[in-house]
Design a protein around this nucleic acid. Structure first.
Length: 682
DNA sequence: CAGACGACATTTTTT
DNA sequence: ATGTCGTCTG
């Protein structure tokens, strides 16, 4: 039993308590990945079949990593079922969907498609018509318009995910639309009907339908029989639906382990509710609660800051982190700059310094609340040819070129997918909304009579004046439609049809061409088109927008949003944008609970660092010439400030320092840029 | 009816 | 600075 000796007492308890409900409150860096890894291994050693274990995590990468590690102890760990709630739902719905009336191929809508579908639903109800009672007010002011598709989509989605009605959501987030609650609710209903009719599912439906499926007694019995042990990671970021799903899956056997940290709950905007983690012991009455407080990640100096943030929170599962590490990288620094570009220069130089001392780029990271604050730094890094990789922000799978190619594959899988057809046809010169709509109607009719869509297109090509482009599309379909080719070959056919359109459409086609080649390689890992397309939406490829990868042999520096940095760690962390309006974000200033979520974001960011942590802020002009901001309240909180070394300009002295740009900047022994160095008094 | 052009508003985090 | 919506022209 030697492998258990590598764990501390609490970890060991979490690993060996295999029967009955367990709630593990795992502080940041307390080895929760290790607990899951060892618990899987332990179950297997006890003779539990890997197929009866289900591991639900936040990303597929996380699941894969834990199972990979577990398989070092027991190779059969590879056969454990693992993934996100959404991917698990997709799998179950493919298998058992017809039990709740889902039939045919399942097309999962990404965010953009979902918005388009909402738009169509609202339009079909006449809500965007100019002669609308809602427009009575003057002109285009806020009152006068029906909400736009993205607003509609997020209201409807929030209503489902939080289990509240439309008015409650509007009251909180969009009070100026409150009077339209009934119309929006109608859009929601129409949208749901539209999806049912067309065989579409959006992200919410995956969870909604899985819960529905689990309400079916027979299915639930069957799945309870199969999955005897259920583990849910990042439980603090689950929403009501996911909480219900976990409950249903565990009801029969009661062998559910939820792992989470209420202090790291940062997905409230998506409907996640910390009530889930608070109520777990109520839903599962005999829950064993285990707290992991020993931190194996960070130095004590960093943990002092983290603990100060914790004590500013009113979290219910009180905890304090203790460091198990000895040596430190010194106290974390708080450094202020007058101008964004100065900050960027300083960071780039600092990164280089660490690099020269032997800290490779892949062990350093820059974190931020929202992507745009990293743009000056990206420019600076590019200038210095420091390779970096950006996580979060613009997602690859949402870029136009990726969606274009994928639309061509979607019509092969599901020729009645009108949203995909629309995308495909609109690329062709001479076809606009009207012609497109007519053709789509004809294609769908033709397909349901069992004929190929290519016929409709070539007969249209013959009667139109310039049908060459449409003819090409028709021959692409003839080569691929209904043919049992592997996904990578279908991708190749779509790609070669699309490539000329790519040149036409984008000036930067070269870069985009590269993306698509990578995507083609991804496609070759799949055996079926349905899985490839499903994963593309549910588990997007992990190559995000890559920045300057000019030295591909070197693992690059990471730039990431805090949300995308969850669960990760680096030796050196630069934390950008610690000023009022950025963190906490301007959009979150209204409500106390939103401020609290921002504070948890701060906590998550701080606890990513192992040795060196730099908290940074600049007070230069942002967009619109508005730059008068103060340091983040999270930093200036007295308890936190006590644990920091503080450098740079205070915002009040910045105001009248316009002419001091040329003042030479000095660096002290720490290498900290100190225009005016000021140590706080305690 | 398609597509270009201009006015206007908006600007976070993600499965 | 960007994307979305509406209008005008060919």
């Amino acid at each position: 039993m030697s492998y258990l000796d590598e764990l501390n007492a609490q970890q060991k308890e979490a690993v060996t308590t295999t029967e009955g409900p367990v709630l593990v409150i795992a502080g940041a860096g307390s080895g929760k990945t290790r607990v899951i890894e060892y618990r899987v291994a332990h179950l297997l050693k006890q003779g539990v079949s890997p197929r009866s274990i289900l591991l639900l995590t936040f990303t597929r990468k996380a699941a894969g990593e834990m199972l990979r590690r577990a398989s070092r102890h027991d190779a059969s760990a590879e056969h454990v079922d693992g993934g996100t709630f959404h991917s698990f739902a997709f799998k179950m719905l493919r298998r058992y969907g017809e039990r709740i009336g889902l039939s045919g191929s399942l097309s999962v809508l990404d965010e953009g498609d979902a918005e388009e579908a909402v738009h169509r639903s609202a339009a079909s109800l006449g809500l965007y018509d100019p002669v609308n009672p809602a427009k009575a007010g003057r002109g285009t002011s806020k009152e006068g318009r029906f909400p736009k598709k993205d607003t509609l989509r997020s209201v409807i989605s929030a209503s489902l995910n939080k289990g509240l009605d439309i008015s409650s959501i509007l009251m909180k987030d969009y009070p100026h639309f409150l009077h339209l609650a009934d119309d929006i609710a109608r859009v929601g209903k129409r949208y749901a009907a539209y999806k049912r009719e067309k065989g579409y599912m959006d992200y919410d439906d995956l969870l909604l339908f899985l819960r529905e499926l689990l309400m079916d007694k027979e299915t639930l019995a069957q799945l309870s029989e199969q999955y005897r042990y259920v583990m849910v990671d990042e439980y603090q970021d689950t929403n009501v639906l996911q909480g219900d799903i976990a409950y249903l899956l565990g009801k029969k056997n009661q062998n559910v382990m939820a792992v989470g940290d209420d202090a790291q709950s940062i997905y409230g905007f998506r409907g996640a509710t910390h009530e889930n983690i608070m109520n777990f012991p109520k839903r599962f009455p005999n829950t064993t609660i285990i707290k992991l407080e020993e931190n194996y990640r960070s130095t004590q100096e960093i943990l002092n800051v983290a603990n100060a943030v914790l004590s500013d929170m009113d979290n219910k599962y009180a905890k304090k982190l203790h460091s198990a590490k000895k040596e430190g990288g010194g106290r974390p620094h708080f450094v202020c700059f007058e101008q964004p570009y100065r900050e960027a220069e300083w960071i780039a130089r600092k990164i280089k310094e660490f690099y020269d001392e032997g800290v490779s780029l892949s062990r350093q990271a820059v974190l931020f609340r929202s992507s745009h604050v990293s743009i000056p730094l990206q420019a600076e890094l590019a200038k210095r040819i420091i390779p970096f990789q950006v996580f979060g922000g613009v997602k690859f799978y949402e870029t136009a070129h990726a969606k274009d190619v994928m639309a061509h594959l979607k019509i092969l899988l599901n020729p009645r997918d009108e949203l995909a057809w629309n995308r495909v046809l609109m690329l062709i010169p001479g076809i606009g909304p009207k012609t497109g709509g007519r053709l789509i109607a004809e294609i769908i009719r033709s397909v349901s009579e069992g004929r190929s869509p290519a016929g409709v297109l070539s007969s249209y090509a013959k009667q139109s004046r310039d049908g060459r482009e449409i003819e090409k599309l028709a021959s692409f379909l003839e080569a691929s439609f209904g043919k049992p080719l592997p996904p990578s070959e279908q991708f190749a056919l779509a790609f070669s049809y699309y490539e000329p359109l790519l040149w036409e459409r984008f000036d930067d086609w070269h870069k985009r061409l590269n993306d698509l080649q990578t995507l083609q390689q991804v496609s070759s890992r799949y055996a079926s088109l349905q899985e490839f397309l499903g994963d593309f939406v549910i588990e997007p490829p992990s190559f995000h927008q890559a920045g300057m990868l000019s030295r591909p042999e070197e693992r690059p520096l990471t730039l990431s949003t805090i949300h995308s940095a969850k669960g990760l760690e680096w030796d050196v962390v630069f934390f950008l944008g610690l000023s009022e309006g950025v963190l906490p974000s301007n959009f979150s200033m209204n409500r106390e609970d939103e401020i609290e979520e921002e504070r948890r974001l701060f906590y998550v960011g701080v606890t990513r660092a192992k040795r060196n942590l730099y908290l940074l802020a600049n007070f230069g002009a942002g967009r619109g010439g508005e730059g008068a901001r103060e340091p983040s309240r999270f930093v200036t909180s007295s308890r936190v400030l006590l644990e920091l070394n503080q450098f740079g300009l205070s915002p009040s002295s910045y105001r009248d320092s316009e002419d001091e740009d040329e003042e030479s900047v000095e660096y002290d022994d720490d290498g900290i840029g100190a225009v005016r160095k000021r140590k706080i008094k305690d």
